[in-house]
Amino acid sequence: MPVLVYTENADGKFKKSTFEAVSYARAIADQNNTNLVAISIGDVSSDQLIALGKYGAEKVLNVSNAKLKNFINQAYASVIADAAKKEGADIVVLSNSFSGRGLAPRIGVKLQAGVADGAVALPEQTGKFTVKKTAFSGKAFAVVELTSINKVISLTPNSYKVVENGGAATVEDYAAEGNASDFKAMIKEIVRSTDKVSLPDADIVVSAGRGLKGPENWGMVEELAGLLGAALACSKPVSDAGWRPHSEHVGQTGIAVSPNLYIAIGISGAIQHLAGVSSSKVIVVINKDPEAPFFKVADYGIVGDAFEVVPKLIAAVKEYKASA
């Protein structure tokens, strides 16, 4: 029985988290000696669909139906669950993106499948089928056994490497509609800030807190982020005060991120902040207080005044880039 992976797109383009999900699903298919089928919904170019083969998809089901152009979780869940049934897939993989979170549980109910949300590693299939996932807001992992025949796994972005060693995938047009009752919700407006790196997908995040004193001081933070190709983030009090938009707020009540590099400037490292960032691979902390709790979970640190350190760091990054 093949593995089915849903390949999410944003405005017709696949994102890194999608390639991670395909690579991850490929590895699961390999564990089970089976094929990997991908399903794409929306307007995606055939070049991109064929290229899913690079990450290990053998076949791509292409649903391009005007009714399904925009993401409606109810309808997408119907289409994906139907495809799983038609293809005989017993494992469905998708990214635990914002949309994935609204989709995986619905697919789970339709397939009577246990759902492993926020997986951070490949399943183990030694008698029991278990998946490791984040729990307690980053303070622990839980190993979940899926006891059902069908299984749905949503993969935490940035927790599995993109692997490219496949070829071209065969693309098939796949006719799907969803059910009439799936279209009650209507999208009124989609606002995308395309010029910036999206925070949940970013490899590098530069984040600043109340230590920066005021919104007028964010220029240097933006400059550092720009140089590193990083997304911007902030602590909760910063967005509460309106210094930065709420969409940049990370932590327990904001966005959870797990980039390769998280640079925290003038943030104390309160437990609620750490809840959203502690799974970052490498953490750098810049804080003038050597006792700031953030240093306890950091890999690298500079004790110093951000207003002196950050400009120097910008200069050092420029120098590094010039020599690289």
Partner: peptide
């Protein structure tokens, strides 16, 4: 029921 937590892990200390 369709799933069950069978164990926990704490993150490797940095």
């Amino acid at each position: 029921t369709l799933s069950e937590i069978i164990s926990y892990e704490t993150p490797a200390p940095r």
